[in-house]
Write a protein that binds this DNA or RNA. Sequence first.
DNA 1: CTAATCACCTGAAGGC
DNA 2: TGCCTTCAGGTGATTA
Length: 265
Amino acid sequence: MPELPEVEVIVRELQPKIIGEEITRVVPIWHRTVVKHDYSPGDDRINAVERHGKYIIIRLDRGFVVVHLRMTGQLMVDAQIDPDARHLRAIIYLKSGKAILFFDSRKFGRIFLSRNLDVVLKNTGIDALSNDFTIKKFIHILKNRKVSIKSFLMDQHHVTGLGNIYIDESLFAAGIHPQTRVDALDAAQIRKLYKKIQIILRRAIDGMGTTISDYKTVGGGFGGYQNYLAVYGRQNKPCPVCHTPIKKIRINNRGTHYCPVCQGE
DNA sequence: CTAATCACCTGAAGGC
DNA sequence: TGCCTTCAGGTGATTA
């Protein structure tokens, strides 16, 4: 389940492979995968590949191809194109004869075609690793919120890029219980969480992301950060700090992992 | 604003 | 072996 670090790794891999190429056409295989707004790339040059939260943004001369992998999406760049390949949902053809192949077993992923980036990103807030994400803004958007900090961070409207894995890891690193109401956090906790979010995300990028089940890099490689997870997926295993068994509960119907001692209870 | 639920999907894992 | 249930989780929509 790709979150910000996995998407960042993919973007970095994609850049040298496709910048300067021209997209000739985008062909859907599963009928819901490609969402066309007002744009059909045709002989349009790729100028940049960027990321906002979990979105991959391919910037062309006249518009944008924006990819969201959701849970099981994978991209590959290849000259070998088999339209019947298992789980292949869309093909972005390039003039060189290669193609960007979009695989997605669960069919939740999307490729948006739009002239206007804001239309596609309208539901996203500040990217968790961007310069816009300052402590001042973080304090501001947290103000007067009554939801749990876990729910707040899951909601991409505020801070975007974090998902279930890195939220649990960040809250553990900051020593904050996931059910803590946002308005009950003190200034020191907010500051610590702010710092830990960025440290964890950077570390995960350095480790090439976390492969739990489906995530692979563009080159087909696996991430390495799953070996460093402190709480996610480690229910009943000892906390790496105090050796208390990690607990798993549900918040907003999402599995949530934490240490009852390090994160208070 | 908030909470809860559903819908979208498939595959893996566990129970019997 | 096989059938059935549950779980995994990102996002958008809907309802209360």
